[in-house]
């Protein structure tokens, strides 16, 4: 799941080298903390959070397949 978020973010931003994803495993949910270069914030959030929402939807679908709950947080 971490790799998926990392790949999506790297594909969207201008500075892929500054993309980092930190995985925090909770009891029932996995939290994926995504950080990008400050210049790229808009590229992963989008107007009214549209891009962030799309990333979350795709990651959720991937996680559901493995019976997991995942939340993506943008730092």
């Amino acid at each position: 799941m971490k790799e998926l978020v990392e790949y999506l973010a790297k594909s969207l931003v201008d500075h892929p080298e500054d993309v980092h994803v930190n995985e925090v495993e909770g009891e029932r949910t996995i939290i994926l903390e995504l950080s990008v270069s400050p210049e790229d914030m808009g590229k992963v959030i989008g107007k009214q959070g549209r891009i962030a929402k799309a990333i979350r939807t795709v990651v959720k679908a991937a996680a559901a397949k493995e019976g997991k709950k995942v939340s993506v947080e943008i730092l």
Binding site: I51, A54, I55, T57, V58, K60, A64
Partner: peptide, 27 residues
């Protein structure tokens, strides 16, 4: 096989994937 997961509720996942695809290729 197993592509229902890509559609999601009322095509929500499909629309998200399509949106991201268009962003990435048009970058």
């Amino acid at each position: 096989k197993d592509l229902g997961i890509l559609i999601g509720r009322r095509g929500e996942t499909l629309d998200s994937l399509q949106f991201l695809l268009n962003l990435v290729v048009n970058k």
